[in-house]
Amino acid sequence: MNNWNDWIEAQPQVVPMLVESIKKQRLAHAYLFDGQAGSGTMELAILLSKSFMCQEKQGANPCLTCLDCTRIDSGNHPDLHKIAPDGQSIKREQVDYLQKEFSYRGVESRQKVYIVSDADKMTGTAANTLLKFLEEPQGETLAILLTEQVENVLPTIRSRAQHIRFHPPLKEEIVKQLMENGIDQKHSSFLAELTENKEAALRLTEDDWSFQARGVVLQLMHELYTRPDQAIITLAEKWLPLMKERIHQEMGLEMMTLWLRDLLYIRVGKQGELVYSDFYESYKELSLSTSQRLITLSLAKVMEAKSQLSANVAVQLVMERLLFTIQEG
């Protein structure tokens, strides 16, 4: 998607705001793009960089053919700098290097842009160093900070950048993108509901993990409501060996949440919104032996289990407690 019109449906509030600022030449010196993976924060940061630097733009749209645009597309524009975490964090040395680069005169143009990915992962010294840079911009400088966890960005940095909140990606668009990657519609819809972004969804398809996990969760939850003694065995023999990584454990719990939500939808007559639509007949049968109140309580227990995982409680203990409490009602 190469122009602003391409993004209007995905980000109907963000795009008009930026387009108007570009047309009126009233761009802020710093922006904080706040959005989850897949929402287009990096793509729009690049597009904004082109509109800022392009000398041949038409309205707000960059021409895409001038030297500035083509060098940005190729990733080697000398006046566009990107910073990303070096390991687990962005370090002061990276910001110091950025400041040094910006002390030189623009090579290709008068403007300079820097994009900071995962701005919430700056060390304290890096954040304070960047803060001074934000307070004293040199020449025609545009700073674009990207984050998925805006609450972890230094408050003084947030106050010196224009905060723009991005909508989560549209599930229909994620489904379309996943199908273009060769994933069938049923599983694409499931992954879109589970992850809410294409990149995370594609990672889950590696080694067929998501396909296996879906089947294990369906088996585990059905047994929990029909043969609880067998559910404990399935947990030990299938769920735990498959969910070794923390991200997989969290996804497994999210799959359980979706399963319980489907069961709740059956109880309240929303059959058209099922994630596990192929499980419809089993849901109908199970819904006869449980209540809306108990399903809601079970959903709350899964949320509690997620919190326990975040607190580093052993996953086996978390899951055994969860199954027991759901079984007991």
Score class of each variant (00 low, 15 high):
N2M: 10
W4M: 07
N5H: 14
W7R: 06
M17I: 14
M17Y: 11
A28T: 06
A28F: 08
S51I: 02
F52G: 01
E56P: 03
Q58P: 12
S74Y: 09
S74W: 09
N76W: 13
H77M: 05
H77Q: 12
I83M: 01
I83G: 00
D96G: 09
E101S: 13
E101M: 15
Y104A: 08
V107Y: 13
V113L: 00
I115S: 02
M122P: 01
T129D: 03
G139E: 07
E140L: 06
E148W: 07
V150F: 03
S159C: 04
A161C: 07
H163L: 13
F166A: 01
E172P: 01
N181C: 11
G182E: 07
K186F: 11
T195N: 13
E196M: 08
K198P: 04
R203Q: 11
S210D: 10
S210Y: 04
R214T: 10
L224C: 02
I232V: 15
I232E: 15
K244G: 03
I247H: 15
Q249T: 10
L264K: 08
V268E: 11
G269F: 02
K270G: 09
E273N: 14
L274A: 09
V275T: 08
S277N: 09
S282Y: 10
L294E: 09
T296H: 05
V302N: 04
A305G: 00
A305T: 01
L309E: 06
N312R: 10
E320Q: 05
R321D: 15
